[in-house]
Structure formats: C-alpha cells, structure tokens
Write a protein that binds this DNA or RNA. Structure first.
Lengths: 174, 174
DNA sequence: AAACCGATATATCAATTTGATACATTTAAT
DNA sequence: ATTAAATGTATCAAATTGATATATCGGTTT
C-alpha cells in the first residue's frame, strides 16, 4: 500500500522521499503510517517498474526527486477504480484520492461499499440480540461488561461509517 | 501485542494455539489480526520467559496446551494497568480484558483516555475551521471534496469514540 | 469397514514492515 | 561564525504477513 500512497502523492508533482512521508503524515497519517524502511524500498521498486522517475538534483545535495510516469499514473488510477474494501483502512486511503476518479465509478463504488456496511450492521445487530439473551441468563453478567463492550464499539463504528458514507454519496456538507 | 492477547485469552483456562487464534478472531478480530506466523513464535517466547507452560497432550495428537503461570498473570495485569493509548487499537484490546482490572485503576485510565480524546477533538475542530476558510478562497474548491473528507471522517471517528467512552465510564447500557 | 471430508493443529518460509539509528546537508536564528 | 533545527537518505535486526505444507481427528457416506 506504501507504493500506491506514494504514487498518489506524487500525482500532484515531483517530490522527495522525505516530502512524501511528511505529506502522508499530515494527511492520511491518522489511519496510515509509513516508515522510511518501507518507503525507500518502495520508491526503488516503483522506479524499477517504470512507474516513477528518479532525478538527482544538480546542487550538491543528497536529494532525489521522484515524478510519476504515464504508466505509473495508469497503474494508480486502476487501483483507485477497484471496489472499496475496508481491509487495513484501504477505503479511507482511496477516498483521500477519490477526486482523481471519474464520477460514475466513484458513485458506484461508494454505494457498493455502503451496502456492505449495511450488511455488516445487520449481522452485528443479530449477534447483539443473541449475546444479550445469553448474558441475561447468567447470574454474574456484570463480570462481562467490558468484554461485551467491544461488540457495541464495533456496531457504533460501523454505524458512524455508514452515516458518513451516506453524506458523501449525496455530496452533502460534511 | 500478540503476546498480551495470548496471555489474556489463556487467563480463562488452558488453550491450544489454534484455539487462541480462533477466540481472538471471534472476539477482538474486528480490530486485531494475528497470523500463525506471529502466534506460534510468540507462544514459544512466552514459554521461554516462564509466562506460559506448555503441555503435550497424552493422546497421539500433535496438540499442545498452554496455561498461564503466576508470573504470566502478573505480567499481563501490569500491561493492563498501563494508561490507555490508541496506538494500533491497543486501547480496544485492553478494554476487552478490562473486567480483570480493579475498578479504581480502570476508572482513572478511562477518564484519562477520554480527556485525551477531547483534546484531539478540539485540535481537529480548530484545524477544520482553518481548512474551511482556506478552501473558501479557492475558485475550484469542489475539486478537493474527497481530499478534505478524510479530515471530517477523523473528527466523526473521535466523536464516536468519545461518546462511547462516556457511556462506559458511567457504566451505562451500551 | 473403508473411504472421504471438513475442521483442528502445528510448522515453515520468503518477502515485507517496523522502529531505531546513523550520518550528512541545508536553513534559520543568535 | 556558530549553533540548532529541519531536511534528506540509508541501513539493520527483529517482528509480521500471507501463504503453503503436512498431519490428525471426528463425523458421514458408501
């Protein structure tokens, strides 16, 4: 995923590795972390694959500037087009770059993702009912308050995401 | 963190590696993943450190049962006592085991975490105001709708967490 | 009883990632 | 002119991932 984030950031113009990391921290840093140990090897792989060009700056500096190639741009946009899935917060990463995506695919993917969220919510609501009933029969149900709470957390979380994506599909004020 | 989750799960009674992984998936799996490649080495480390005991089952099976030692129990509870921090969802992991923690420390840690969440919310509200004003001055501000959306997502997320922890401090129905 | 299948169980491995540190240069401030 | 802070790349041991290999158990079918 480091590779796609790097490509996405370089879409705006050529950047150094240091700048890419800084921008990532300031923007998607809330839910995505990258380290130099993963970034620099990723940049090298991208250059080797012809998706980025590497340019040494003429002044004596140790600095290298990376720019995206046509192939890299295509590769990035193909990734962006793929359906949203919440695996490792990839959906939020893609969302950050969604201004680059054409409206039609964007809307289709957002709606599909929202439906999958709705399914998740339904499944968790059912589970909640079952667990509540099982718990009701225990004499010491207070002893499981926190253990059970993470299920409620998950439900709250999915509901929040669902509400957020609803607003976004309607392009409401967020 | 695999080590602490394993200890926490074995607190209930002896389990095989396979069972530990299954229980983790079914309970904290929503926000924490473990693979065999990290679990089995972790179990070996815990045995070597004297925090778990390993027992080969007498029937011909390839199965090993792990049980927690007094030292392991102490080590686990020390970890649980430490302040909650949202690094890599560690706070949710600890929360799942919070029934094991004494009420006084539990309340103190929950309140401290809630305050840090409130600080985060305040900082993000300020940032939001600044970004909104900057955006207002751009002619093509619609081109940054999704880019900006991740900031709103973050804010929503923190607000949801804050509301959730408020309910939990008051031990309300969740 | 034999064959079969899905679940249970542990182990291993290349590739990747983390978190830390080392080291050099550039910019800004004193 | 000197220092401190920020910018910049590189590297490494240790940990993790995601996948695969291998074997056994319990239950069902033929």
């Amino acid at each position: 995923m480091v590779e796609y984030v790097s490509l996405g950031i370089v879409m705006e113009g050529q950047k150094s590795g240091y700048e890419i990391k800084k921008i990532a921290e300031q923007t998607v840093g809330l839910f995505f972390k990258m380290s130099y140990g993963s970034l620099y090897p990723a940049l090298n792989r991208l250059v080797a694959a012809g998706r980025l060009t590497e340019e040494e700056t003429n002044n004596s500096k140790n600095k290298k500037l990376y720019a995206i190639t046509e192939q890299g741009r295509g590769h990035f946009l193909e990734w962006l087009k793929e359906p949203l899935q919440s695996n490792r917060r990839e959906h939020l990463l893609k969302l950050f770059f969604y201004d680059y995506l054409e409206e039609e695919i964007r809307k289709r993917n957002l709606q599909a993702f929202q439906h999958s969220l709705q399914n998740g919510i339904s499944r968790m609501e059912s589970l909640k009912t079952i667990v509540s009933k099982e718990l009701e029969q225990l004499p010491n149900k207070d002893d499981y308050y926190y253990r059970v709470s993470v299920m409620h957390y998950g439900l709250q979380f999915f509901k929040m995401e669902h509400a957020f994506f609803t607003k976004m599909i309607d392009k409401e004020e967020l």
